[in-house]
Amino acid sequence: MTKVTMTVNGKAVSAETEGRTLLVQFLREGAGLTGTHVGCDTSQCGACTVHVNGQAVKSCTIFAQDVAGAEVRTIEGMAHADGSLNPLQQAFNDCHGLQCGFCTPGMVMASAALLANNPRPTEAEIRHGLEGNICRCTGYHNIVKAVLQASGQTDTQGVAAE
């Protein structure tokens, strides 16, 4: 067992790990942050997406020991300091961009990274950009609307504003 420390949502977190301990296990079991979910075992579904040093990463695909010392942000670190939703989270709520909520943390983290790289994406760019995140409930329609709204495009393309 090796003790690993990293910064999660601005706070130093340490836990004992094996070489095979995945980042998602470190977060869920070590840090007690159960907002990051595991939806598959082939790095396909994206429910475990978090930010590592600002990049969206599927946390089931990376060993905890490989990201020792990194800055990690999870869904628990996305809201404003006063607990209110950030504009992207608010857009998911406004647009009904979630149903069962299980893919939602990964979807929000992937969308946030998408918008950081491309602040005004087209509908096609959003759909392509979220291809690594599977949602079984929404048909993606309202997720795409939410990302459009979060990027300030509520009145374009006639979709987000309907």
């Binding site: 159960t34 907002g35 979910h37 996305m78 809201a79 009904h96 979630l98 299980f102």
Partner: peptide, 19 residues
């Protein structure tokens, strides 16, 4: 009406069985 359950799901505070 906007969904009240969204607030916990959007902040990682949902409580699923594996949690």
């Amino acid at each position: 009406t906007k969904r009240r359950e969204d607030l916990r799901f959007l902040t990682g505070k949902g409580r699923y069985t594996d949690d």
